[in-house]
Design a protein around this nucleic acid. Structure first.
Lengths: 332, 332
DNA sequence: TTGAAAGCGCTACCAC
DNA sequence: GTGGTAGCGCTTTCAA
């Protein structure tokens, strides 16, 4: 920068100002400086700028999995929502592993992000304390934690499961299955299952047919394998909720390969409003949580919380509306 | 850090060393320092560390689209390959837009990344010169550019298109279509189309039936719309290559909704070995470029180029092998 | 509108 | 194995 200053015949301070928009530098000086910077191939060093100004320009985000259109839609919504405010996204994936999430968050915190967006409301104790001590806005998404760290943009996964249970029950089915992942790594998936089963119990259905198959994220392969096992074990099952549309598609595909007709022989519901649910044959009944909106609302919250002009005007908790999309896989 | 030093009764230099693995600090001192850091809730400032050491610890990567399992697989391969070497990934998406790519690369360069991975071999002139002037390893992926900026991990998209043409022709088809995106934004998709058509011409097929629909990335919706139009315009089409498996699935779904049987009435080939191609009914013939390997090899190249011990031992250009996976959508 | 000085928090370098 | 000093490249603050 001092080289640029020398060539342009000004001080480094003036160069620093000229390189930022909306700073008081005369037009002629700015033009001279820009010419000098171009000539020298000068590139501003954001690391030094961040150290000096104590503004890293980073927003950190962790998602369970990159290869999941729900989360990449949320990341896209966040990026779009942040566009123009000068933030860059530090994106990491945890692979549905709390220890990895903790490692990732710790690494991000060393970069002094100005806000942090995480997926879900379940974290290791140390992760929670790191986030609380960070001193910057923290947003938990895709969930409605009972004891949030700071801010929340999400919905109740249990309620979503209940909604699907009521829909399938209303179609006249009485023998239900649920296909999801092993264990509790995907806590949001487990919440959906819990809500689904609770609603069925309330409706008088007492028999559970839960099939857990493989580590999250459940994709088509695990969904197909789970359906094959489920039909083997309980051949009279009439309606199945899958933890995601990807597993629902795999499950439907497996049922069809077994010669079953969907929904005549078996109804299948998914989750997440993935593209695949719309273009499958038949198309798949699903729950749409507007994944991109979750990111967009998070961005709004961040900009709001970080804006200097007065106190934050947005609530700390935004509930995302969601809707059931009834399609051919459950309604003939 | 000076607070930690005071509490532990050592100098800041010793704290700095103790916080990094593999530095000569006595075990007792290190334990004392770690206790002090924990007590104070101290978090290392990587920004300052990067400024001082001139090692940002970043590897930058741009992909056309986040929500595409090919690219997220490559990003995952890169992350996994970099694990343990202490690098963090700065990931951005260009939305298949060269101007956006240039903006993104410029922003990344201000963060002094230690290596840069980009998708494809087509960039704006300014983007090329920025990358060349960066002074760090640059890897172009998913392509085999004639005039690479620096290093390359990829394959020939045109050759991939040729391979699919030969396969479909060998199945006895003589009336071919190609479904891809509008314009030249997706240069790799355009290369596949070029190779596909060139091979057909060589095989004596003179009639082209190219249907371009919508902006990249082409997803199921555009594939379905394109197939509907294609069948409307050229109802006797017998074999179609789609620029990706997602569009192939959409196209197949549209053909089936029109009452056509796949592959008896129309054969459909895709690209990318997505999950959907494996679980669709029928399953879809595709080209597998081992997307994750592209990321993994890129990571190897970076570690190799940045390792201090002697000169780089890997070639500057790694060609990724790919294979045709013949499935039910083209072979009855 | 511009400039000079101080210092952000850390590590390279050299000394012991 | 440990400590002191200088300085990374920028922006803050204050003064002109």
């Amino acid at each position: 920068m001092s080289d640029v200053a020398r060539v342009a015949g000004v001080s480094v301070m003036t160069v620093s100002r000229a390189l930022k928009p909306q700073t008081p530098v005369s037009e002629s000086t700015r033009a001279r400086i820009e010419a000098a910077a171009e000539e020298l191939g000068y590139v501003l060093n954001s690391t030094a700028a961040g150290l000096s100004s104590r503004h890293s320009g980073f927003v950190a985000m962790t998602v369970p999995s990159l290869n999941n259109s729900n989360f990449s839609d949320t990341a896209r919504g966040l990026t779009e929502g942040l566009r123009g405010s000068g933030f860059e996204l530090l994106l990491g994936y945890t692979n549905y592993d709390m220890a990895e999430e903790e490692r990732l968050i710790a690494a991000f915190l060393r970069r002094s992000p100005e806000a942090i967006v995480v997926t879900g409301g379940a974290h290791s104790a140390r992760c929670r304390s790191l986030l609380k001590a960070s001193g910057v806005p923290v947003i938990e998404t895709w969930d409605l934690p009972a004891d949030p760290i700071d801010k929340v943009v999400g919905f109740s996964n249990a309620e979503a499961g209940r909604l699907m249970a009521h829909h399938l029950h209303s179609q006249g089915h009485r023998k239900f299955g649920f296909i999801g992942g092993d264990g509790m790594r995907d806590t949001r998936g487990a919440d959906r299952r819990r809500g689904f089963l609770a609603a069925l119990h309330e409706l008088g259905v007492t028999e559970d047919r839960v099939l857990s198959e493989g580590d999250p994220p459940l994709s088509m392969g695990e969904g197909a394998a789970a359906m094959t096992k489920l039909l083997d074990r309980w051949p009279d099952t009439k309606a199945v909720m899958c933890v995601s549309d990807l597993s629902a598609f795999g499950a439907m595909s497996a049922a069809q390969r077994c010669g079953l007709s969907v929904p005549a022989d078996i109804a299948i519901g998914g989750f997440g409003a993935y593209d695949i649910a719309k273009y499958a044959l038949p198309d798949i009944t699903t729950l749409d949580m507007s994944a991109e909106d979750i990111g967009r609302k998070s961005a709004e919250m961040i900009v709001d919380a970080l804006s200097k002009g007065g106190p934050a005007s947005l609530p700390d908790r935004i509930e995302i509306p969601y809707k059931l999309i009834v399609r051919g896989s459950t309604a003939a």
